[in-house]
Nucleic acid binder design. Structure first.
Length: 200
DNA sequence: TCTACGATTTACT
DNA sequence: GTAAATCGTAGAA
């Protein structure tokens, strides 16, 4: 069952942990690529100094963050990687969940070919840049409707017990001052596919 | 226009 | 532990 607007149009701090265990589906050349989300981070503008839309900063890049929950926000980082975010809450509330890592489920060979990854299965989607590469997600999906679209969407997946969800500090946002210490990163404990397990 | 740099990954000392 | 790859965007000039 696909997740709908009612799921995404809630506060990002509710949606980010709720996405753990859900299935991210990418239909690429008529082939279904499926993976289970195991790591997310919440970005909560306008208050969040780590969020691109801090203080409601509205630019060409951040425009998609202001869409209603259920759309995608994609941007390029370091000149070579795309990041996949799920916009949450109501229109004009710039919040999004960064999908940081997932566990491959279907179409693994295609994912390997797309990413050129030769390592082991657990590392194929273990990072936001790698995940986008292996699923052929680029900026054409910026602003994409994940509720009604057919090439990229999210399905109800496995139910995750509360006690398996680890809360930690977000990665690589040292510029965010007091917000860098917020425990807005969520991942499944003991899952070998998360990007890293250190850090609090 | 011009410049600096990032919600990363990988390889290397 | 540190550094390089690589480019669109934001903010300054």
């Amino acid at each position: 069952m696909r997740l709908g607007y009612d799921f995404f149009q809630r506060d990002v701090l509710t949606v980010a942990p709720a996405l753990l265990g859900a299935y991210l589906v990418r239909v690429y050349n008529n082939q279904k690529l499926v993976c289970k989300i195991v790591e997310t981070e919440a970005y909560r503008g306008p208050e969040d100094k780590g969020c691109h839309a801090y203080r409601n900063k509205r630019t060409k890049r951040t425009e998609a963050l202001f869409l209603p929950g259920g759309h995608a926000y994609i941007y390029m980082i370091y000149g070579m990687y795309y990041m996949l975010n799920i916009v949450t809450a109501q229109q004009d509330q710039p919040q999004a969940v960064l999908i940081r890592a997932a566990e491959p489920r279907e179409g693994i060979e295609t994912m390997r070919n797309l990413s050129g990854h030769t390592g082991n299965f657990e590392r194929l989607l273990s990072g936001p840049g790698k995940l986008c590469r292996a699923l052929a997600i680029d900026r054409t999906f910026n602003g994409y409707n994940l509720v009604e679209g057919t090439e990229l969407f999210i399905e109800l997946g496995e139910t995750v017990p509360e006690n398996q969800i680890v809360h930690s500090k977000r990665i690589n946002i040292d510029y965010a001052e007091e917000y860098k210490d917020k425990l807005w990163r969520y991942y499944l404990s003991d899952n070998p596919c998360v990007s890293r397990i250190d850090n609090k």
